[in-house]
Design a protein around this nucleic acid. Structure first.
Length: 278
DNA sequence: TCCATTTGACCCTT
DNA sequence: AAGGGTCAAATGGA
């Protein structure tokens, strides 16, 4: 399922994405849990923490490649053109269209295409100031197949317009500042999409590492990306994962039981596979 | 009237 | 030839 340690960038990305989704699911479940179900909420919190530790463990297993492998397809084309490429995953808690994913920058949609093998179409946006200021920044937004609330957002090119400063921080913030930028972007998301609660799943590393998130970021200094993503995370720690629980034993509401069991089964399947690979 | 979105067509790369 | 990315005309809303 996921290549671990022996894998190149692809397995690294898949593992990171998988772990991020697990953590997001755990937190979503915790949020939905009846506040009276203390044991269940604690378990969810512990699960999210466990996934966090797993992310760190995986990070220690995946040192960022010093020389990224050759790119394939359009990524290679972009790299050849010297286009910066940054990918983010954004989760929303209610179904929205891609236009709702306001990131504080002004974009104009110029196309939409059905992508082979993908359940949802990909939307194409360019900077509003493309013609007036010659800004070549573009982004692509696509719903994840497995999770309609999860969006893949790929930023291509740098803003050379008046938004350049904002975009520069957003795309090339060094790790020690990325958390602040994450908070800024979250604020923008909240402010720009009233009534919508959004969460960046592939979060930038927070300075205090309180929540121990990770991010996909550029492997090149200065934020000029070459089409590859690095897996950055706080320092290593041990991984603890206990499987001796069930939804019923911790008093989970029936409404959440299916979700809980789904999360548990996904988590268990994922970790069993990874342990085998280790 | 201006600007953003939609959508079919075209172009480029593999 | 297939698939992905972009263009541009048509359309609609403010």
């Amino acid at each position: 399922m996921v290549e671990l340690c022996g894998g190149e960038g692809e397995g690294q990305i898949m593992l990171a994405t998988e772990l991020a989704q697990l953590r997001a699911m755990a937190r979503e479940l915790e949020a939905k849990m009846d506040p009276d179900r203390v044991a269940a909420r604690e378990l969810c919190r512990a699960l999210a923490s466990s996934v966090d530790r797993s992310i760190r463990l995986a990070a220690s297993c995946f040192p960022p490649p010093e020389h990224p492998p050759p790119a394939a397809g359009n990524a290679g084309r972009d790299a050849a053109k010297g286009m910066a490429k940054v990918r983010r995953q954004v989760r929303v808690t209610s179904v929205q269209d891609t236009a709702s994913l306001d990131d504080g920058l002004s974009w104009r949609k110029y196309g939409q295409k059905d992508i082979l093998g993908a359940k949802y179409p990909r939307a194409y946006f360019r900077c509003t100031h493309r013609h007036t200021q010659g800004c070549n920044a573009t982004k692509q937004v696509q719903r994840a197949d497995g999770d309609p609330l999860l969006f893949d957002v790929v930023y291509l090119g740098d803003h050379t317009c008046g938004q350049a400063a904002v975009a520069a921080v957003a795309q090339s913030a060094p790790p020690e500042h990325a958390g602040q930028e994450q908070q800024r972007q979250s604020s923008l998301l909240a402010a720009g999409t009233e009534g919508i609660h959004q969460q960046v799943v592939a979060e930038p590393m927070e300075a205090a590492a309180a929540a121990a998130p990770f991010l996909f970021t550029s492997t090149a200094a200065g934020g000029v990306d070459d089409g590859y993503f690095s897996f950055i995370s706080p320092a290593n720690s041990d991984c603890q994962f206990s499987s001796d629980f069930s939804a019923g034993s911790v008093g989970v509401d029936m409404d959440h039981e299916a979700c809980f069991e789904d999360l548990f089964s996904n988590t268990l399947e994922f970790f069993q596979s990874e342990i085998q690979n280790l």
